[in-house]
C-alpha cells in the first residue's frame, strides 16, 4: 500500500477493533491463521474482529483478502456475499494432476469485466502474472445456482489463464482445480475481493522470475543488472493502486 502512496498500518487480529474506524481500506494478508486448524480460515472467520470488518465492508470500505485472507472472507460468508454471512463457497484442498497438497508457482490471471474495485486499474481481460502458494485454494460451490449468480452478476473478478489469456481448465494453467478457473471473487457491490494469488509478491519488477513467459518476463530480463529498473512496478501492484486514496489508516 505504501508503494502506491497510501498510508498503511499493521493491525493485529486481537487489537481493539474500534481502531479500524476511519480505515480507507483493509487488507487481510496471506499467512497461516490458527495454523489452518480444522480448515483454513474458518477459526479466524469467527473472531470478533470480523464483526467489525463485516460492518466496514457493508458500509462500502474496500476489503481485500489474499490467500489465507481470502479463505477467511469465504468462511465468513462475506464472499460471495450474495447472502451476507452465509457460507456459499469453499476454498477446498487443491486438486492437481499427479500431486496433492501445497503448490507454489507463478500463474497468469485474466482480469474479468466486473465491478470489483480492486481490479479497477486493469484493462478488461488484461493478463496479470501473480504467484500462488497454497494447499487449499480450489473455489467450489455445492449449489450451481450460486456459481451462476456470481457469473451473472460479474463477481468473478479473476481467472487462471494461459499467458495468452486462454481459460484452460487443466493443470497447471488451473493450478488447483477451481471451478471455472476462478482465482478471485468479489462481493456484489465490488468492494470486497477474495483472491488466492499473492499480488504483494509481484509488486516490484525484481520479484518477477527471469524465466516468466510473456511481456512481464521480457521486461524483467531487460532490466537485469539495472538496480533502478528492478525497483520499478511489478504486475501485482495495480491491485493496490486500484483503490482510491482515502483518509488513510487510523493508526
Amino acid at each position: 500500500m505504501r508503494a502506491v502512496g497510501r498510508k498503511a498500518a499493521l493491525f493485529r487480529w486481537n487489537d481493539d477493533p474500534s481502531l479500524l474506524a476511519g480505515a480507507a481500506a483493509i487488507v487481510l494478508p496471506g499467512g497461516f491463521s490458527y495454523q489452518d486448524r480444522i480448515r483454513a480460515g474458518v477459526v479466524a472467520a469467527k473472531d470478533r474482529v470480523m464483526d467489525t470488518i463485516g460492518e466496514l465492508a457493508s458500509a462500502g470500505i474496500p476489503v481485500l483478502g489474499i490467500c489465507n485472507g481470502a479463505q477467511v472472507l469465504v468462511e465468513s460468508g462475506f464472499i460471495p456475499g450474495i447472502h451476507w454471512e452465509r457460507v456459499d463457497l469453499a476454498l477446498a484442498p487443491n486438486v492437481m494432476a499427479d500431486r496433492a497438497g501445497y503448490y507454489c508457482a507463478w500463474t497468469h490471471l485474466r482480469a474479468e469485466k466486473s465491478a470489483c474495485l480492486w481490479t479497477g486499474a486493469f484493462a478488461p481481460e488484461e493478463i496479470v502474472p501473480v504467484p500462488i502458494a497454497h494447499a487449499e485454494g480450489r473455489f467450489v460451490a455445492d449449489d450451481a445456482a450460486i456459481l451462476e449468480e456470481m457469473e451473472r452478476a460479474g463477481q468473478v473478478a479473476l481467472r487462471y489463464c494461459t499467458v495468452r489469456g486462454e481459460i484452460d481448465p487443466s493443470f497447471p494453467v488451473n493450478p488447483n482445480g477451481s471451478v471455472g478457473n476462478i482465482a478471485g471473487v468479489c462481493n456484489p457491490a465490488g468492494n470486497v475481493l477474495a483472491m488466492m494469488p499473492h499480488p504483494e509478491r509481484a509488486s516490484w519488477l525484481r520479484q518477477v522470475p527471469e524465466d516468466l513467459d510473456g511481456p512481464w518476463g521480457r521486461r524483467r530480463r531487460a532490466a537485469a543488472g539495472e538496480a533502478t529498473r528492478m525497483e520499478e512496478e511489478g504486475p501485482g501492484r495495480r491491485f493496490f493502486a486500484s483503490i482510491p486514496a482515502g483518509k488513510g489508516g487510523s493508526r
Binding site: 480448515r39 472467520a45 470480523m50 463457497l89 469453499a90 477446498a92
Partner: peptide, 11 residues
C-alpha cells in the same frame, strides 16, 4: 459465519 465449524458442506 455464526453456525457450524467442523466441515464445509461445499466439499
Amino acid at each position: 459465519r455464526r453456525e457450524g465449524l467442523l466441515l464445509n458442506p461445499h466439499y
